[in-house]
């Protein structure tokens, strides 16, 4: 992680273009002291992936819950040339619009976006779910594992991954097909390349606690889990047998309950 930089001329001079952002929400019944939780959907996914199970579950546990799609994803406005910085801007914009200091939860490549956003917004806490921090090694291993989906991505086409990589076999085939049909939009070619080659996220501001959650059997993020968790001075919370999309998998309830238990702990 790099040190703090006070003079940010590039960010001052070139603010990302404003865009419509899709934000879904679920409010807990009764007065809630708990901080709002903002889920950020990963590359190629929209806010709906959290609306399926996790959003409701979070609200039931007393947290105001929000889920957002990055620009160019889901129902958010189109952004063919979006950069990682624009995605970070989306996250900080939505987080700052919430009534209270929020917990940020990023999935997949959006875990990297959230990690970067932590340097631009003092989150109360952050959870990186199945984080994909990219890098050249990850790109090669993706190329090896899913050449048909990855090769077009080299030419700026959206990265397409087989269902088998995203979900475990426990998910009924009908559901898996339904999820696949709901994909709309995706990361820009530029952002995909930036995922391969980017600077390490800057140090988080406000010293938030960071939790890393994932599955060792996730063939996309599984192997890097320990390294990412180590970066934040901890060990990952593991849910064996699940795929990359923990929030859509058959046993979706286990990870979200663990995350909320962690948030409920005093001091978080």
């Amino acid at each position: 992680m790099t040190g703090i930089r006070l003079v940010r001329q590039r960010e001052w001079a070139f603010p990302p273009a404003p865009v419509r952002r899709e934000v879904l929400s679920a409010t807990p019944t009764g007065a809630a002291d708990a901080p709002p939780v903002l889920f950020v959907a990963g590359f190629g996914q929209g806010a709906w992936v959290f609306a399926e199970h996790w959003l409701e579950r979070t609200a039931e546990r007393g947290f105001p819950a929000y889920a957002m799609s990055l620009r160019g994803h889901g129902e958010s406005g189109p952004a063919a040339k979006a950069t990682l910085r624009a995605y970070v801007h989306d996250v900080t914009q939505v987080a700052a619009s919430l009534p209270r200091q929020a917990v940020l939860v990023g999935h997949g490549a959006s875990a990297l976006v959230v990690a970067m956003a932590l340097a631009r917004y003092p989150a109360r806490a952050a959870v990186l779910v199945a984080p994909v921090f990219g890098g050249v090694g990850a790109a090669f291993s993706a190329l090896g594992r899913a050449p048909l989906g990855t090769v077009p991505a080299l030419f700026g086409r959206p990265l397409r991954l087989r269902r088998g990589l995203l979900l475990s076999r426990e998910v009924p085939a009908a559901d898996a097909r339904r999820y696949a049909a709901r994909r709309r939009g995706g990361a820009s070619g530029r952002a995909q390349w930036q995922l391969v080659a980017h600077r390490a996220p800057e140090e988080p501001v406000g010293n938030p606690p960071v939790l890393v959650v994932g599955s060792p059997d996730d063939r996309i993020a599984g192997r890097a889990l320990a390294a990412v968790a180590h970066r934040y001075g901890g060990a990952p919370l593991l849910f064996p047998g699940m795929g990359h999309d923990l929030m859509l998998d058959a046993r979706w309830q286990e990870p979200i309950d663990a995350i909320l238990d962690w948030l409920d702990k005093p001091g978080q």
Partner: peptide, 15 residues
């Protein structure tokens, strides 16, 4: 303008 005026960790709304 906004980017040079806001707190660096609490952006003013895009709209």
């Amino acid at each position: 303008s906004k980017p040079l005026t806001q707190f660096p960790d609490f952006p003013m709304p895009d709209d």
